[in-house]
């Protein structure tokens, strides 16, 4: 579904070259929910922008359903961390959700239908005529999610979407993402710096190294598919997985080799 192959991104800032991403390769199957964690400053956002076609990689490629991504692909939607800047303050909630559909050239009746459905799906059916800035932060991010859902993407990219909301809202939004994912069967790549969030949400967790970035480990989250804030987070398996990811991130920060590549380097 989504293939990232040998992705490298070097920023040329005058005389100084910064290699944000060295070599990233991973695959998402259709309908998967994969979380991407890494130490802060490891180029998560750069990676996401490359996948979303907003940045051109220095080398390597991103394939969406076998087609190479050169610009924003039509079957992909992005939810940004900065909901306040990503939603247009001059448009009402409903118009914000509708704008990408208008660009898609959908007939008005179908657009209305999708907007209503998407807002209902995120629990904001009655906020359609409000302006985004009249809503709380969590509600604004719900609008941004509704906009992505209404777009009917095959792949949904989420760039630390809940980093700027409070803990209780974040828990609600995490459950919302799981529920929408189950309902829509969309492929989700969820970027976060929050280890608990990554383990709680994902079927798999990709742990990145610190910059210049490579994939340090791919971890399958063998927790039951039905998850809830109370029991899943209390599960000993959840704690074990979280501790493992935490160790890997700590090791990545100190620049220690990952378990998978350690053997190679000694040999």
């Amino acid at each position: 579904m989504l293939d990232v192959r040998g992705l490298q991104k070097v920023y040329n800032g005058g005389a100084r070259q910064v290699e944000a991403i060295r070599d990233l390769t991973f695959t998402l199957s259709a309908g998967e929910l994969v979380c991407l964690v890494g130490p802060s400053g490891c180029g998560k956002t750069t990676l996401l922008k490359c996948i979303g076609g907003l940045l051109t990689p220095t080398s390597g490629e991103v394939l969406l359903q076998g087609r190479r991504v050169t610009g924003p692909p039509p079957g992909m939607a992005v939810v940004f961390q900065e909901y306040g800047r990503s939603l247009f303050p001059w448009l009402r909630v409903g118009e914000n959700v509708e704008l990408p559909l208008r660009q898609k050239g959908l007939p008005k009746a179908r657009r209305r239908e999708l907007v209503t459905e998407a807002l209902a799906a995120v629990g904001l059916a009655d906020a359609e005529s409000a302006y985004p800035w009249q809503l709380s932060g969590g509600m604004q991010q719900r609008v941004a999610i509704a906009r992505a859902v209404a777009f009917e993407p095959e792949v949904l990219l989420m760039d630390e979407p809940f980093a700027a909301v409070d803990a209780q809202t974040r828990a609600d939004l995490e459950d919302l993402v799981r529920a929408l994912w189950h309902k829509l069967g969309v492929t989700i790549l969820f970027v976060t710096h929050d280890i608990d969030e990554a383990v709680y949400l994902g079927q798999r967790v990709l742990i990145l190294s610190s910059s210049p970035t490579v994939v340090r480990e791919e971890l399958t989250i063998d927790l039951p598919d039905t998850r809830d804030q109370l029991h899943t987070r209390g599960d000993p398996r959840f704690t074990a997985l979280r501790t493992h990811v935490q160790e890997q991130i700590q090791a990545a920060k100190r620049g220690l080799p990952s378990p998978s590549t350690a053997g190679d380097e000694e040999a």
Binding site: G52, L54, P72, F80, E82, R85, L99, P100
Partner: peptide
């Protein structure tokens, strides 16, 4: 961010 949002939705 607003411009990137618009671009990512294919505007």
């Amino acid at each position: 961010v607003a411009d990137e949002t618009a671009r990512s939705y294919g505007l």
